[in-house]
Design a protein around this nucleic acid. Structure first.
Lengths: 208, 208
DNA sequence: CAAGTTTTTGACCGTATGGTCAATAATGTA
DNA sequence: TACATTATTGACCATACGGTCAAAAACTTG
């Protein structure tokens, strides 16, 4: 009955995502989006509501994609859980040291959000928790198989890896090279090799 | 001979810094800056050149301040180098889980820079290297005193800690709580407890 | 083929942006 | 006290922004 759309929402969101990844939310103009998506302003507005809403859609797609990717990287059975994490981190090091100007929408949202109640904030927090969940699952397996200490705190380690990858992303953007970023990734893995989980008495030795 | 200024540049830069830390470069309006600094638009323009230039000044001040702070935290002689790093990271965990909307100008510059030749990028890269240098110095001491393995790669570990703190900053902004952030900080320290530095043969055990 | 519904198109709008100008004020020196 | 020099003030400007409107177009169903 109604006139059919000429576009698929997913295509539009994906084009918009690209624009946002390069420019960010504030710096991307509606015109950029119109050009990138091929839609008219009004069509964009009808379908999504505005720049911010479109960003949220893109963010949510980005989150799904990121989770999916990490989930796949960590979920395969081709190697030990620990090796999978290792491989994943090394791949991140390569990705983050690429020279394109993209910044993950999650990071953008984090930085551009205006407050804790900003939908950008809540969406991002959810995304981070989701991501941490994926790491946690893999770490759980690792513990099961004895790759890491039984008493390792899987939850905080999972968040730790989210933090590390976020940090690597930022550093890559700062121009830190692939070699260094790879070294950082390998360094970060060492927390898993430590003999035992954190406990009150296990302080580092006091100097003389 | 000439009419004297009514303001001290450092005061202005510091007020501007605040604005940028809360809003970012793109989202901060000249009006925000005028209001925050108390200067007229033209005075601002005369003294600094424009929004971007003012941001660069603020960024550079921010960098100095950050370096100074970390340097002091890691340079005291009140505890072993390792303990100082520990204390510093724990303090960061607290700072980053505070609820204010500030984001370090370095992070902002990283995200808002438009390209590798953007002054924002170069300034930021320099800042990161400077910061890494401070960590490296402390790690060197730690190695000297036997707190960490002799063959530890101090350079990459230094960058690693920059990455971790950057990641913690982002996570804090995402609303990750103080407890979790503290746990992450403690986790991150474990790379230093590892028995030996990365070497080709030291792979994690392959699962069955 | 006409009615009904929604999309599309492109012109339009108020606002607020970063930046500039020209006039005025404040100072040290001569 | 006049001059030279710079700072300040507040009005001003072009532009480009996000968003809206109304008319035309495209389709399905009756």
């Amino acid at each position: 009955m109604p006139r059919p759309r000429k576009f698929r929402e997913s295509d539009v969101v994906s084009s918009a995502s690209e624009v946002f990844a390069v420019h960010g939310l504030a710096a991307a103009t509606l015109d950029d989006l119109v050009r990138a998506t091929g839609l008219g302003k009004q069509s964009l507005y009808n379908a999504f509501g505005g720049k911010r809403e479109l960003f949220l859609r893109a963010l949510s797609e980005d989150r799904e994609e990121a989770t999916r990717a990490v989930s796949e990287a960590l979920g395969h059975d081709d190697a030990s859980p620990l090796e999978r994490i290792r491989g994943h981190l090394l791949r991140m090091a390569i990705e983050f040291s690429s020279s394109d100007r993209r910044v993950s929408l999650t990071t953008r949202a984090l930085v551009e959000s205006t407050g804790a109640e900003d939908p950008l904030s809540t969406a991002t927090k959810a995304g981070i928790e989701q991501l941490a969940g994926v790491y946690a699952q893999c770490l759980d397996h690792a513990r099961e198989y004895g790759d890491i200490p039984q008493d390792a705190n899987v939850q905080s380690l999972a968040v730790y890896f989210v933090a590390v990858t976020r940090g690597m992303e930022l550093l890559g953007r700062a121009g830190v090279g692939r070699g260094v970023l790879t070294a950082v990734a390998l360094d970060s893995l060492r927390v898993l090799q430590a003999q035992r989980a954190e406990e009150p008495g296990a302080r580092p030795p006091v100097r003389e």
